[in-house]
């Protein structure tokens, strides 16, 4: 079964602007999906630079998809979509 990879930026900018809360995603996901996400706390993803902070906190999904102004709810929704899409 495919897994969704979620990289949460824990660089100081993203951390101050809300990434700490997104780290709760594991426990917030419904039981059935829990084993199917791979969650990683990452040091600064260097995105805060590129967009002049405009979108921190950042989350990267499956290496390529970048979620700006990420929230726990938003990331959960996207992850669920991806998992249900591929299942």
């Amino acid at each position: 079964m495919e897994k969704v990879k979620v990289e949460i930026c824990c660089g100081t900018a993203c951390y101050l602007l809300g990434s700490a809360k997104i780290m709760d995603i594991e426990s917030a996901l419904p039981e059935a999906l829990r084993g199917r996400v791979e969650i990683e706390a990452r040091p600064c993803l260097n995105l805060c630079e590129r967009e002049n902070l405009g979108g921190a906190p950042y989350v990267r999904i499956n290496e390529t998809e970048i979620v700006a102004k990420a929230t726990l709810e938003g990331v959960m929704k996207r992850v669920t979509e991806l998992l249900e899409g591929v299942s």
């Binding site: 660089g11 100081t12 900018a13 101050l16 706390a41 040091p43």
Partner: peptide, 17 residues
């Protein structure tokens, strides 16, 4: 702490690393 955090973030310093 917020202001310290801003200095760290501004200077791209991650506590974890």
């Amino acid at each position: 702490f917020e202001e310290l955090g801003a200095i760290l973030a501004g200077r791209r310093i991650d506590v974890l690393s």
